[in-house]
């Protein structure tokens, strides 16, 4: 069959890419749990997608096509860097890549429920999250600011994450999930 795909305009590409940028970051960070590395990979994927845009069939969804590049890039990075022990094995990465797609509906529901759970947190916890995630203060900076040990703050952050996850999962059970 002769391909009828025409080259994407820069505007079309920007629209398609913008729509899946955050999905790409979530996907890559799942496989490569290092924010800086993950952002580097996403940037490279964006470049590759543009470079290969002539191969994209507009009749098909963009996200699975883009995701394929991301998965390949992560695996290439793992093979190339020989960073076993710092990141996951290829086997686990392949497994996560597959299951991430299969679980997307549930993950999406969990993300939606998170906002409500954040509101239920006590004020000190929300304040801590605001400083850590909103202002991007390091744990060390927070520890100095609050006169606490870094270990104590790591523990507090861990407990807040745990509280949020539990709240989300409780909410989803109520809504019929799990």
């Amino acid at each position: 069959m002769v391909s009828m795909a025409k080259e994407l305009s820069s505007e079309d590409f920007a629209a398609l890419y913008s729509a899946c940028h955050l999905d790409l970051l979530r996907y890559v960070l799942t496989l490569l749990p290092d924010r800086v590395q993950a952002e580097d990979v996403v940037q490279e994927v964006a470049r590759l997608l543009w470079q290969k845009r002539q191969e994209y069939d507009p009749a098909k969804p963009f996200w699975p096509w883009a995701r394929g590049f991301a998965r390949f890039e992560v695996l290439m990075l793992l093979r190339h860097q020989n960073i076993r022990g710092k990141y996951f094995s290829e086997q686990l990465v392949e497994q996560l890549a597959e299951e991430r797609v299969a679980n997307e509906e549930q993950l999406s529901a969990q993300r939606e429920a998170l906002a409500g759970c954040l509101q239920k947190l006590d004020e000190p916890s929300r304040e801590l999250l605001m400083l850590r995630y909103g202002r991007e203060l390091t744990v060390q900076q927070l520890a100095e600011q609050r006169g606490k040990s870094a270990n104590a703050l790591y523990l507090t952050l861990h407990r807040i994450r745990q509280t949020l996850v539990d709240c989300v999962n409780r909410t989803l059970r109520i809504d019929g999930w799990v």
Binding site: L25, L29, R100, Q106, Q110, R111, L118, M130, Y133, V168
Partner: peptide, 18 residues
């Protein structure tokens, strides 16, 4: 693994939500 994915997503969502 599902739990891990949830926590990864939470980590990305929190800056936006906060």
């Amino acid at each position: 693994r599902r739990f891990y994915m949830q926590m990864i997503d939470q980590e990305i969502e929190l800056p936006c939500l906060v």
